[in-house]
Amino acid sequence: MSDRDPQAAWLDAWTATQRDMWQKFLSGNATAAPQPAPGLAQFMQFFGQPLPESSQDVTRKMMEFGEGYLGVAREFWKLVESAGGSGKGDTLQRELEALRSSFTQGFSKLYGGGPLGADMLAAWQRMGGPAAAGAGSQMPPWPALPALGLTRERQEAMERLGQAAMRYQQALGRYGEMLGRVSADAVERLSKRIARGAQSNEQIGSFRAMYDLWVDCGEQAFAAAAHGADFAKAQSEVNDALMELKTEQQKQVEDWARSLDLPTRTEMNTLLKRVNTLRRRLRELEEEVEQGRRKRGP
């Protein structure tokens, strides 16, 4: 029986599989394009040795972005293939348009909706927690009906919650659209850089060079948008809408807590403020005592 480290053996096998898949893909014999390294992350999760805490996040990101990079390389190869044989004027432009379309689709798939959008929108969702997760599904059944009778306040609260959820969803949508435009601009810039390189005999010689070029274009596109007032407003609207949604949820939780005679956040805040005021007052008094002692001398 071999005493080879099972983890190393698995990684060897994974690498060999990748090579085999890519060989078929590049020679045009593959029935399907190689997938971006399926299984590596799952393997580490289930069979890998426990990682030191400080390494866990790096490993996760390295695998995530490494797999993503291989997916990008696959898209790059399509560009390389489609550009093969082209070289002049209209033909090159046509190829670049095709590349542009391929990029947009490829990156959309890779990042799940847009190179920026997925990460940043997911972060907002995480920040929102349950409030954001449930947003949109909390619309009151009859938002336009006037609130009447014993349940009037409850109905109004639900309506406010529903309106806040709707505002948040709309804000998130507008922000996502803005990030989508950044992605489109990044692709546009990339196309131009490729065309310019071709015209000045500067060929792109590796996937990595292509990837770095994409990142440069992405950052330029992002900077162009992010410094504008529209971007800042769209971003702050997501934040403000989320805060409104959470405010409405907190009110409902507080109502519920009060009905069970449980402590509420509002009461906690009052107590914390009182403690802070007392601490400040105590320090002032201590200083006064100290000053008096100094005046009296030893």
Partner: peptide, 14 residues
């Protein structure tokens, strides 16, 4: 052609 990547080079890099 804007690219100078052939299949052998691509395979080697990947």
């Amino acid at each position: 052609n804007p690219f100078s990547i052939d299949s052998a080079k691509a395979l080697e890099e990947v």
